[in-house]
């Protein structure tokens, strides 16, 4: 007699290994924490050079984006991400990687339809829903006079 889909689903769940949540969380904490510590170090260095808080924060973001883009181009970032997981995905460095990686990959289809069109293939949804939710938040804040 043939196995049913639900029987097979049960069997598949028994056989298929799950991701190791505890290990992934520890690595994400360590590597994500390290990236944020580097960010803090940069901010403090910029402040030390006499910049204002706003300037130092902006320059820290720009620096982290640059470092991540460079490491992506040097074929290093994805190797860190193998261990870092969410720790490399969530900080602004992950956003940088998600734009630079497709830009490099799809260059072979030309600068317009390849690089230009595919650059935001991963980051695009983040931008769309990030901007949309910030607008919704802004409207709610305005209507309820939360600011």
């Amino acid at each position: 007699m043939k196995m049913t889909a639900s029987e097979y689903d049960r069997l598949n769940k028994q056989v298929s290994p799950n991701s190791s949540v505890v290990k992934n969380c520890i690595f994400a904490f360590l590597i994500g924490g390290l990236i944020c510590t580097i960010g803090e170090f940069l901010t403090n260095s910029f402040l030390h050079m006499g910049m204002l808080q706003r300037e130092a924060a902006a320059l820290t973001s720009v620096s982290l984006i640059f470092i991540a883009a460079l490491l992506t181009g040097l074929n290093v970032y994805d190797n860190i991400a193998k261990f870092g997981g969410a720790g490399t995905l969530v900080p602004i460095t992950g956003f940088s990687n998600s734009i630079v990686a497709p830009a490099l990959e799809f260059k072979s289809e030309g600068f317009v339809l390849g690089l230009g069109a595919k650059m935001f293939i991963i980051a695009g949804p983040v931008l769309v829903y990030g901007i949309t939710s910030s607008v919704v938040y802004g409207v709610i804040a305005f209507l309820f006079k939360l600011y």
């Binding site: 298929s16 290994p17 799950n18 991701s19 992934n24 992506t72 181009g73 074929n75 970032y77 994805d78 860190i80 991400a81 193998k82 870092g84 997981g85 490399t88 995905l89 992950g94 990687n97 998600s98 630079v100 990686a101 497709p102 490099l104 990959e105 799809f106 991963i122």
Partner: peptide, 15 residues
């Protein structure tokens, strides 16, 4: 590049 992600994208593969 056809089925999944660009090579340099930092993602984790499932077991």
């Amino acid at each position: 590049r056809q089925f999944r992600f660009p090579l340099e994208y930092g993602g984790q593969r499932t077991p």
